[in-house]
Design a protein around this nucleic acid. Sequence first.
DNA 1: CCAGCAATAT
DNA 2: CATATTGCTG
Length: 501
Amino acid sequence: MGDPRGVVSSCHSFTQEIHVLLVDHEKETLVSMARMLEFYAYKVTAVQSGSTALSLLLDGNNQFDLVLTDIHLPDINSFMLLQESLNRELPTVFMSADEDAMLAKIALENGACFFLEKPTGSNVLKSLWQHVIKERLYKEKMYGKKETLHQYEMSNQNGIRIWNSEESDLEGKNDTDTSSKKAKDGGKKKARHIGIGAIADDEACESDKGSRKSAKKFCTEWTDELHRKFMAAVDHLGEGRCYPKEILELMNVPGLTRMQVASHLQKCRNDNWRAPETRKSNASSSQNNGSPYKFGSRKFGSMPRLQKNSSSYPETSHLEESWVHQTGPGIYSTLGNSFMGNREGEYSVQLIQSQAHVVPNFVGGNIPTHNSSIQSNEGQIGTHGINNVTYNGIYLNATSNDTRDQNSGSMLGKTTNQNSRATPSYFGNATFGADSHSSASNQTPIPDDFFDFLPELEGTHGFSKYLAGSTTMSYGSIPETHNAFDVEPIFFDRVSLNKFH
DNA sequence: CCAGCAATAT
DNA sequence: CATATTGCTG
């Protein structure tokens, strides 16, 4: 790792590199793809011949996470490779230079999880890791092994993790009886339970005795990152005026729920929260001592639900300093620095969380069985969807056409330090930021040039159309609930904490 | 409907 | 233990 180019890539937050077995007879393609993959922090083993690939697979010394191969291999039938790959439960991605839809279909039907057209855009490659995750999720669901995911979760700093509710609610609590209050049926059932979360040390959760597979409760760990965002939002809103809902919107963390924020807020108000690092040490003595996060008691305001006084709305001045005009992916937010910013003058202000939009999503994904609604390319791949964007401090409700993930060309030279990393996050059912229709008050037309700097989508989308039949398209809005594996890939490319020596 | 709080659950 | 959830009050 430690990508010398400082590239923010989607793999960085994994503990483990994703090891790709790349197979392509054509040398040029092989090399360029390998480079691209490495650029995105994959570990790559590139081979030109199918037989070599096969033997690598067979020998078992290599722990690949994903196989990416041209479907046309001169020496062997690529489906043999596929077969072997599937035997090892490796997600397998085929690619092909020619647009052979039939072949693509066959490949998908036979277990390939994706089918790409060559040449393949970097954005597609960048998102390949998601197939790995998806595969693991699938295994977890099938076999109930959680260990599979574990290693990936361990280092996810931002801490978004997926969980799919739906299976749990079947048995969990049907609320059958008593009809308490919730019984009003209505729309949302309890689909909301996603989990986001960061991993925490996790062992805490070993409580499952095996019987109830899905009873797990996932929590989000309030990592520094998350808390920083939280604090930034709080600061932005003003001490007396920080309500969970607004904080949530400002934080703009997919999957985070209002309740969670409220809970965290509650804790912070009581000064009961410690940063993860400072946790494990003795809680005994004066706890508030060494913690970097110690707020004056009245940092959050107790709850003056009053004055909407516009005049005293938080000065934007300090915010403007923190804008980061990054040409990176996606979205720009002002959040991020205020809390850490001044601490010991250690960090410069800046950073930003950019939320790059949807990447060619598991389109074409052929994860066995779950009927899920794989979203169609045409419909969803773009960014019709997540539309909460902060721009110059103003919430936009964008309905864009093409703010997709971009290649990182523009970030090449400038992103920076070893601290930069990306945190891919994925989730099952999530509540995104604000709901799109509520606060009309906050909305503002998008400046004409807002999307101008966003790169064009390049590359191929793969063959998702073959699944279109079973698809629920969702243009323009986030579906309320997702299927279990309907994972929305969202990248948080972030450059954070630029240390100023 | 939502914020806030406290207690309780996991 | 840290979070999530619930029940209650406004």
